[in-house]
């Protein structure tokens, strides 16, 4: 049975958390940075994804703090989350390498 591929928003959220724990708005800003401004996560999408990722055991709450009277909850990647992100990244890399090789652009990628 083939495994379901990860959605781009999920992949980017996990990538944002790969460097360390972050709070909600930090993830939104980091995802925008990682995607070169192409993906702008909105709160509904972000918390829907975080809820699903917590349920699947890929992300967990690291800590909470109150800044200027507002609650900030920091999320971090679990070991399972890191494994799944690595698997997905390797899959993307392999697909991209194949595509570039077939387009005759593989050398350009190496430089």
């Amino acid at each position: 049975m083939t495994k379901r591929t990860m959605q781009e928003a999920t992949f980017l959220i996990l990538t944002a958390l790969a460097a360390g724990s972050q709070h909600g708005y930090g993830i939104v800003a980091d995802v925008a940075r990682i995607s070169g401004g192409r993906v702008r996560l909105r709160a509904g999408t972000l918390y829907s994804a975080l809820d699903r990722l917590r349920l699947d055991g890929l992300v967990r709450v690291d800590r909470e703090e109150v800044v200027e009277g507002r609650l900030r909850r920091y999320y971090q990647l679990t070991a399972e989350g890191a494994t799944q992100l690595a698997t997905e990244a390797a899959r993307f890399q392999a697909n991209a390498a194949t595509a570039l090789a077939r387009l005759g652009l593989a050398e350009g990628m190496a430089t």
Binding site: H23, G24, Y25, V28, A43, Y47, R70, L71, R72, R73
Partner: peptide, 11 residues
């Protein structure tokens, strides 16, 4: 709720 509100207002 408080957390999501924080993200919405920050954005």
């Amino acid at each position: 709720e408080a957390e999501v509100l924080g993200v919405l207002l920050a954005g």
